[in-house]
Design a protein around this nucleic acid. Structure first.
Ligand SMILES: [Mn+2]
Ligand SMILES: [Mn+2]
Ligand SMILES: [Mn+2]
Ligand SMILES: [Mn+2]
Lengths: 219, 219
DNA sequence: GAAATTATTTAGATTTGTCTAACTTTTATT
DNA sequence: AATAAAAGTTAGACAAATCTAAATAATTTC
């Protein structure tokens, strides 16, 4: 199956929406891809013809087994390139998503497997997301929850859900990276903001919007 | 100036043909790009509108200064990616052209300059071709001539003109690489074939077609 | 220098991916 | 249940890149 760049981007976005439990709607996918609902309907028909999605009009979209497999291969490429950019070319984690968005469409099995070897076959990308293997399999992920739901005090940052520049730059500024250990000092019920402390640095407060997008595990 | 993949491929091919002294004709460019003359005429109008080429109907095509600059930037990207594939991912020189043909279109100044640094700012690619700098300037090339025209006996291979799989695999099989030192034993006038010797290995004969595509310098 | 051949351009079609505007279906509200 | 609002689809258009077939220009051959 040889997919166009546009088709690959759709498949990847559908996977992302499905992953977030949301049922995939025409409008939601249009928003995700920064396009119009009419365009989504058109593409949905095409992807259905290629048996990559199940789609009946007015009934929403879901990936078939083939579609899911395709998605995982694109995600593998995306995340491996992100690793390359960060580990080898010293890009920061907020810069890589955009470039990987293009690199992920370079089609060569050999290239991507060599790249993986060159990087030491990493299993998570610079944002803490797991990298599928050459067969498109995801290793079982470590249990992680979002910081706003964590109920223990001492936590380690394992991933970031939102990859926007805005959030990633904010986290960098605050000294929050993958692997950062933090301690919850206080939770304020009023606005669900959280006061946290990193090592010996002075404590500071982060909003619910931020804490929802930081994934952590107890430590 | 934001160019499409198709436009970039045209610009690069025009540069290549101009470089080879040939005047750039519609049919010649169509052949080079594996497309049809009618398509070339269409694209020629578009590139003229963008002021990248001079073109008047029936009068052939030539790059403007802007077009030449654009070409050199694409060539820089192509050749740097080739270096990456060979030096870092251990691809062989006959495998890299095709993949670089896609990678060259990834648009990010920062990416390509970081890549260049990562590779140690190489000045020649795996086929012996010079790599333009970030400003699109080519360093002065070492004087080289094709093996069929060389008049001295002891020579060093500096580049290969033809990048086809067929030739590159042949050269690899014969032990001819960039930097290989060879000695001309005999030139046969009948078919312009040449008998050569590499180090202590037994001499062998290569055809004019091959020797025309091997660039050398006296040593 | 006229005829034949070759090169180039144009006209009209096609595919892919997108859009707007109009229409239809579904869902929410009263 | 009727109506209003939101969500989704269709119809028709457009731009990019390509093609085939037909027309035209340039070049070569005799
Ligand atoms: Mn992409
Ligand atoms: Mn990522
Ligand atoms: Mn290319
Ligand atoms: Mn090369």
């Amino acid at each position: 199956m040889n997919l166009s760049v546009a088709e690959e981007n759709y498949i990847k976005s559908i996977y992302k929406l499905e992953e977030g439990q949301e049922s995939v709607t025409t409008t939601g996918l249009a928003y995700e891809l920064d396009t119009k609902p009419a365009s989504v309907t058109d593409m949905a028909k095409k992807l259905r013809d290629k048996k990559l999605i199940d789609y009946e009009k007015y009934q929403g979209i879901s990936l078939t087994a083939d579609g899911k497999k395709a998605a995982l291969h694109i995600i593998r490429r995306h995340r491996l390139w992100e690793c390359f950019l960060v580990d080898k070319l010293s890009f920061s984690w907020e810069e890589v998503h955009e470039i990987a968005e293009e690199l992920e469409h370079i089609r060569s099995e050999k290239l991507i497997n060599r790249l993986s070897d060159f990087l030491g076959n990493p299993t998570i990308d610079p944002h803490g997301d797991p990298i599928p293997d050459a067969q498109g399999r995801l290793g079982k992920q470590r249990t992680q929850i979002s910081l706003d739901q964590a109920r223990t005090k001492r936590l380690e940052v394992t991933a970031v859900s939102d990859k926007s520049n805005a959030l990633l730059e904010f986290l960098t500024a605050k000294g929050i990276r993958l692997g950062t250990h933090l301690e919850v000092i206080e939770r304020y019920e009023f606005d669900n903001s959280i006061e946290i402390k990193i090592r010996n640095q002075p404590a500071f407060t982060i909003s619910e919007q931020v804490s929802k997008n930081i994934m952590v595990r107890p430590v």
